[in-house]
Design a protein around this nucleic acid. Structure first.
Lengths: 166, 166
DNA sequence: GTACGATAGTCAACGTGGTTGACCAAATAG
DNA sequence: CTATTTGGTCAACCACGTTGACTATCGTAC
């Protein structure tokens, strides 16, 4: 990873107010996620990447299958399967045969997976509280309400062409 | 790309308020970017991907070099070079020799590149205006001010490990 | 004026995350 | 019982990132 350039905002043209809004939303999201993973790394989950959080969340405590997971994340079953492979290697997920259907392989969180998910939830709560401390609880709530009104609810969709592959 | 699942929010746990905030910020960002590129595609720039906007913006009207571009985007010069390759193929960028330094290759926007950047700026302005129409100009400004206070100004950094490669 | 270190660009190998298409085995519908 | 659908995997490919190695050029120091 290259070193940071403190002047990296040089080309953002403040004359065009429209550019700022998406950049600020992205910066806000990234700040939360970066802070989360910095702390997560300190708590023994250095190998968890941002995308993995979405996946663990989508697997959920009840477990799921590769096809269903792909459906939830909005990616192909093949992509979901490969992501599961990596999380299995890292020790966050496990596959088990479904006794009721020999085709299916149940995907479940391991203990480590549960731990990571639990810590993420706690840490996100803490980060939100920190924002509320800076901005005031009312402003944070207002921010959430406003975004709820204008944003499409495609929370978990990872299939933006050009962000992740084509 | 897989088909959308309207129930893809099923695993978001509303009991944990901390999860909502990052998701809403991401959803807000993605809404703007998706809307932008939908309209951009209608205006003859169907091959522009979200990441490309960052790159064109970072190249800027003045042009730059691959190393400097990598520096601005926070990625290696090799990564910057490869991205430039793709944008050159798409007709948005061009390389020219620097008469003052035979090592350097100037990277400049083509006419098509300028057009894409100009349209993006206009469309982002329009999208922000649409949000202001829904929420009120004051709320949008407040949203921007709040985010400015809590977000790290790493606007252009694309080097989040786990989002894009390692 | 030459030798040397820093800089710009490229190539190669690799990792991650995505896509299609093809394929097999098992479940299900007729 | 056959035909179709469904779940999982393999293979090939693309986008985007990394490090390491290499060449060519520039600038400096002697």
């Amino acid at each position: 990873m290259a070193t940071a350039d403190p002047a990296n905002t040089a080309t953002a043209d403040p004359e065009r107010p429209g550019f700022l809004l998406p950049l600020l939303l992205l910066a806000g999201f990234r700040t939360l996620v970066d802070d989360l993973h910095a702390e997560l790394a300190r708590q023994g989950h250095a190998d968890l990447r941002p995308v993995h959080g979405f996946v663990l969340q989508a697997v959920g405590p009840a477990g799921t299958t590769a096809s269903e997971l792909g459906h939830r994340l909005g990616v192909s079953k093949q992509a979901a399967g490969k992501t599961v492979d990596r999380l299995v290697v890292l020790g966050y997920l496990e596959r088990a045969d479904d006794p009721a259907d020999a085709r299916r392989k149940l995907i479940r969180l391991t203990d480590r997976g549960h731990d990571g998910l639990r810590r993420s939830a706690t840490l996100f709560d803490e980060l939100r509280a920190r924002w509320a401390q800076t901005l005031g609880e009312q402003r944070v709530s207002a921010l959430e309400d406003d975004l709820r009104r204008v944003a499409q609810p495609n929370f978990f969709r990872l299939d933006v062409p050009g962000w992740f592959g084509t």
